[in-house]
Design a protein around this nucleic acid. Structure first.
Length: 270
DNA sequence: CCCTATGTTCCCAA
DNA sequence: CTTGGGAACATAGG
């Protein structure tokens, strides 16, 4: 469910409600999440995000690391009633955070606060076209796969990869090492245009994403291609197509996002 | 029954 | 060794 804008939304909202509060109790309802013990009584010093990973920094060099994967949600609430699929409840003085996750892919671990998470650069503040052009030179995977590789760039998932590539007018199947420096500049501008806007909209509620307070985001109203198969391209009026790339539904406009040197005719080997 | 799903990791083949 | 593709994970919904 959550990509960079959604996790950033949760991160900012969490800061408002838990920084300075003490963990009163942790209830692990589904132990598949991971081993998290010994955090009761610790005070929250800060909340941060690395790509799609959320870190709740505590006293004594301890950090609770949450990854929501596909369907994980966090919900701030009072009272004891639990929603279906609640896997974890962290109680603070003023309220509780439930981690709700139907598909049970989410993870919770503890790390030393001082240990950095090893991920690619954050496209919000460091989408460096020259650097990315350079590290893409050995890389023959499709540009969409490159964008979604968390070791290279951290935080972009399937929805925003489709959106960014459309905004940059690039074919998702172009080889990563085939992009010119100028195209990397265009790609950076697209990412740095779309991601902050999605954060301002508190994420994309295309199915079940909700923010910390259970509210839908607004960015689903701004999507250019994702989930719009057969709808009219907002740029040229042509039909948005959906094809699979590495098993993921990939939405694009065959007119606006042509491969260099020729029209995409739907039969080219991909 | 079929297919799809906002993510990551592992296995296998080239 | 690397690269890249697909399955697996577990569950719900169309």
């Amino acid at each position: 469910m959550p990509e960079l804008p959604e996790v950033e939304t949760l991160c900012r909202q969490l800061r408002h409600v838990i920084v300075g509060s003490e963990i009163a109790e942790i209830r692990i309802i589904d132990s598949k999440l991971g081993a998290i013990e010994g955090l009761e009584g610790k005070t929250v010093k800060g909340v941060s995000r690395d790509g799609k990973t959320l870190s709740i920094e505590l006293e004594e060099n301890l950090t609770l690391v949450l990854h929501l994967r596909m369907t994980g949600r966090l919900l701030w609430h009072n009272g004891n009633g639990l929603q279906p699929h609640t896997r974890l409840v962290i109680s603070f003085g003023p309220g509780r955070i439930s981690l709700i996750d139907p598909r049970r892919f989410a993870t919770a671990t503890i790390r030393q606060t001082a240990d950095r998470i090893s991920l690619g650069s954050d496209p919000l503040d460091a989408f460096d076209p020259s650097h990315l052009w350079k590290i893409a030179q050995q890389c023959t995977i499709p540009i969409k796969s490159f964008l979604m590789d968390q070791r290279r760039i951290a935080g972009i998932g399937n929805i925003y990869a489709c959106e960014i590539l459309h905004q940059a007018r690039l074919d998702p199947w172009r080889k990563a090492n085939g992009l010119s420096r100028d195209e990397w500049v265009t790609l950076g501008a697209a990412a740095q245009g779309i991601l902050p806007k999605a954060i301002a909209n508190r994420g994309t509620s295309i199915s079940d994403w909700r923010d910390l307070f259970g509210k839908k985001g607004k960015h689903q109203d701004c999507l250019l291609v994702y989930g719009r198969e057969d709808a009219a391209c907002r740029s040229c009026g042509g039909k948005i197509q959906r094809r699979k790339l590495n098993g993921r539904g990939t939405y694009f406009c065959p007119t606006c996002q042509q491969r260099k040197g020729g029209a995409y005719d739907g039969t080219m080997e991909l």
